[in-house]
Design a binder for these strands. Structure first.
Length: 491
RNA sequence: CGGGGUGUAGCGUAGCCUGGUAUCGCGCCACAUUUGGGAUGUGGAGGUCGUAGGUUCGAAUCCUGCCACCCCGACCA
């Protein structure tokens, strides 16, 4: 594989695309806007899935699976939901192909038209709430806590690997509750689950907040979100958790009998994260040498590279390498022994750096003799010679240090890129030259929000949770404001 | 969907203006020598030049349609 070097500083999006391909994470497919996730990329996604799935189960959720197709009529039942998704829906209209007798080409059989078109799900609220109507009769059926791992389709105009693809993989939680309070608690709890996952596993610091009415999910009363900051100073929405009120219960007539024998509509939440998290992971940590994976997410945490000149050395070195592999495996560390004999050590060093493996151990005859190994860490590129004594514990410790360091580095960058501004001039200046989040007063109106977006492309990423109340003047209009909100250009 | 660009072996490319059956590097296969930061030599395999038509004795090259991708917009997780 020849690696084309593209620097972040020269062309950030070319760097990103190049990295996704050269690190063997994904590639474009024959279908417009759809990607093939390659084994190495999928292994990372599987690690994300496994960790999230565990967290969902620990908070009482169960997995289920609903259909890929949604009858068109279901879609029209919740008005704002339709508005939000209608323009990006793929629609199934026929169920059969046939060979055209004159051209001998495969065509859609006009006789096989569906009576009712089916929508390929862009999200599953409607089909799920239509099902919940039958599942929920009494307060004893609540709460209903369901998650599904699925693919969804949103017909986007412009796509980018992982960040925005026509089809993407995600999980969507859909829960039903007896009270508004309980549903809000669930919404907040899942936001917290996402935030912990992002920070502890992905090592991406996030800001928790709520969206403005403009940016809210179609059909939600409140959208909570986690926002990350990428290395180019643009924000990325990494997960959302919605309080849906009784909108879907009313649209699909989902009522339950209370203890007091009264009929009431059910309260709902939905929440999701997608393969977009792969994009966040890549853009937050990686460098000009390639991917940088946090140890908690790396499919391969340690790679061992044996080095030898002569045949007799090779035997000894390989024996030592296998011994170390066993030591680390016993510690539950995922280790790859790269014993390919058709590649030079230098090539392997570069390749595993490109793939973001957190720790590399090189062992040569010199090391065997000295009872040592050479240990290199991916995040700082530092190399050190370590003695074999207690090596497994030292590597384990190093992995957790790397995890912390990657997070801290991202956190420092993020914190340096939250800039409070009080004037419109400053706002424009920071947005253009410094980038990142801008903390500014906003008069609370949609008009101002839209105006700022039109003028600068910056949007209100969120109103941070636990925001400090502070009187001030809107950065654009000068109208009174009670708190600052976070603006940024976003993906 | 609008503006701009690109498409030649797995990857990166030359050739295109001025038509004559495709260049180079990396990778791949074999053997040998190598191996502490992207090894070297020798030999070999691999291409209906994105695709469908057209012009021509002859098309990677000229013309038309289509497709895909990239960049910038609009839209969006």
């Amino acid at each position: 594989m020849e690696i084309k070097k593209v620097k972040r500083s020269e062309d950030y999006s070319a760097w990103y695309n190049n990295l996704v391909k050269s690190a063997d994470l994904a590639e474009h497919s024959a279908v417009k806007g759809c990607m093939v996730i390659k084994p190495y990329g999928y292994a990372i996604w599987e690690k994300m899935q496994a960790d999230l799935d565990k967290r969902f189960k620990e908070t009482g959720h169960q997995n289920a699976y609903f259909p890929l197709f949604i009858p068109k009529s279901f879609f029209s039942k919740e008005a704002s939901h339709v508005d939000g998704f209608a323009k990006e829906c793929a629609v199934v209209t026929h169920y059969r192909l046939k060979v055209d007798e004159t051209t001998n080409e495969i065509i859609v059989d006009p006789d096989a038209k569906l009576d009712e078109e089916l929508i390929v799900r862009p999200t599953s609220e409607t089909i799920i709430w239509n099902t919940y109507r039958d599942w929920i009769k009494s307060y004893r059926d609540l709460p209903l806590l369901i998650n599904q791992w699925a693919n969804v389709v949103r017909w986007e105009m412009r796509t980018r690997l992982f960040l925005r693809t026509t089809e993407f993989l995600w999980q969507e939680g859909h829960t039903a509750h007896a009270t508004s309070d309980e549903a809000i608690k669930e919404t907040e709890q899942m936001l917290e689950v996402y935030a912990e996952f992002a920070e502890n596993i992905l090592a991406v610091p996030v800001i928790k907040g709520v969206k403005t009415a403009n940016e809210r999910f179609a059909g939600a009363l409140e959208t909570y979100c986690i926002e990350g900051l990428m290395q180019d100073g643009k924000a990325l929405q990494m997960g959302t958790s919605h309080f849906l009120g009784q909108n879907f219960a009313k649209a699909f007539d989902v009522k339950f009998v209370t203890k007091e024998n009264k009929q009431e509509y059910v309260w709902a939440t939905s929440w999701g994260v997608s393969t977009r998290l792969m994009g966040a992971l890549i853009m937050c940590h990686s460098d000009d040498e390639g991917l940088v994976l946090p140890p908690n997410l790396a499919p391969i945490q340690v790679v061992i590279i044996p080095i030898s000149r002569k045949e007799e050395e090779k035997v000894v070195v390989l024996e030592r390498a296998k011994h170390i592999q066993q030591l680390l495996k016993a510690k539950n560390i995922s280790v790859k022994l790269d014993d390919r004999d058709n590649q030079s050590p230098g090539f392997k060093f570069a390749e595993w750096e490109l793939k973001g493996v957190p720790v590399r151990i090189a062992i040569g005859p010199r090391d065997v003799q000295n009872e040592s190994v050479e240990v290199a860490r991916r995040d700082t590129k530092e190399k050190q010679v370590m003695s074999m004594v207690d090596l497994d514990n030292k590597i384990e410790h190093l992995l957790s240090q790397i995890q912390k360091n990657i997070y801290q580095k991202a956190l420092d960058y993020r914190d340096e890129h939250i800039t409070a501004v009080d004037t419109w001039e400053e706002f424009l200046n920071v947005l253009e030259n410094k980038t990142g989040f801008i903390s500014a007063h906003w008069d609370g109106t949609s008009e101002t929000e839209v105006k700022i977006k039109e003028m600068t492309k910056a949007t209100i990423r969120c109103i941070p949770l636990n925001n400090k109340m502070e009187t001030g003047k809107c950065v654009l209009t000068g109208n009174p404001s009670k708190q600052r909100v976070l603006f940024a250009k976003a993906y």
